[in-house]
């Protein structure tokens, strides 16, 4: 209407000018008020998202702490329940009265004590190996994973195989340990929950990306399930995987194969990221 009046030379200029100016001013003030309120709304929404993310991180951290505590409790229980009584028994065999006993009994007691100490050494070695697998430390991730899969296959309960396609250069030791723990956790989950008849692990690289893929034919989870479990209070192992991968800036994807027969888990890491991480450390 106003534009029509502007185009028409016979129109009343003061009226158009008055309403035009008032209209533009009202629009501007309206826009400013809208911007102020909308901006605050947007910020609140972003903050809420940030808070959710923080809560998620907190949950992961709690899971990781709980897992550490559980591990400590397990080691403490192993030492207290197994190593403790064994050493106490050995001490009984080697008491002060031993010198007053006859030679045959003395020899028998020393032999028994030696046996018990050997058992204790083996037990402590087992505990130590469970904390840091020697194969991983000495020969790297490929050997440690092959070793783990051979043990699983050897048990006869499941067919497990692994193949590293491109692992000529070893990753940093601490990163190898993190990846190994993630694989261990995934394999444990498959053994416990999936009823699978086989697990197959493959490793390969593409550019600066490092991939590890696990296939199995049992019951598995998809990414939606994983996200759901991550947000809930259950699924401690999965949260532990997530928090470990966060350290490496890695990603994990759970999916069902195209053929709908297999479940696939893909771990994706950026090689450069790992180097950076090590340098910072």
């Amino acid at each position: 209407m106003i534009l029509l009046q502007i185009a028409n030379p016979g129109s009343s200029v003061p009226t158009v000018l008055f309403f035009g100016t008032i209209g533009m001013l009202s629009l501007t003030i309206g826009l400013i008020v809208f911007i102020i309120f909308h901006q605050r709304k947007v910020i609140r929404y972003q903050m809420r998202l940030q808070k959710l993310e923080q809560d998620q991180q907190k949950m992961l951290l709690n899971a990781s702490i709980r897992l550490q505590e559980e591990e400590r409790q397990r080691i403490a229980a192993d030492l207290h329940d197994d190593a403790g009584p064994l050493l106490a028994t050995a001490r009984l065999y080697l008491n002060e009265n031993l010198v007053n006993l006859d030679k045959t009994t003395q020899l028998q007691s020393i032999y028994n004590a030696k046996q018990i100490i050997d058992d204790t050494i083996q037990l402590i070695r087992n505990i130590s190996h469970s904390l840091m697998p020697p194969t991983l430390k000495n020969f790297g991730l490929e050997s440690a994973v092959n070793d783990l899969f051979q043990k699983i296959s050897g048990s006869g309960s499941m067919n497990a195989s692994s193949r590293f396609h491109d692992y000529r250069e070893r990753l940093q030791a601490e990163n190898e340990l993190i990846i190994f723990r993630v694989i261990q956790e995934l394999v444990n989950n498959i053994l416990k929950h999936s009823n699978a008849s086989f697990i197959h692990l493959t490793q390969n690289t593409s550019g600066d990306r490092f991939f590890i893929r696990l296939h199995h034919d049992g019951r598995g989870i998809t990414q939606t399930d994983f996200d759901k479990l991550n947000k809930s209070n259950v699924g401690l192992g999965l949260k532990n995987i997530q928090s470990r991968l966060k350290v490496l800036h890695g990603k994990i994807f759970f999916e069902k194969d195209m053929s709908q027969t297999y479940y696939k888990v893909t771990i994706e890491l950026v090689k450069d990221d790992e180097h950076k991480l090590t340098k910072v450390d």
Partner: peptide, 13 residues
């Protein structure tokens, strides 16, 4: 914004 929107019609005329 306030200055230019308020003077738009004034400048047109």
């Amino acid at each position: 914004l306030i200055y230019f929107s308020s003077t738009l019609f004034l400048f047109i005329y």
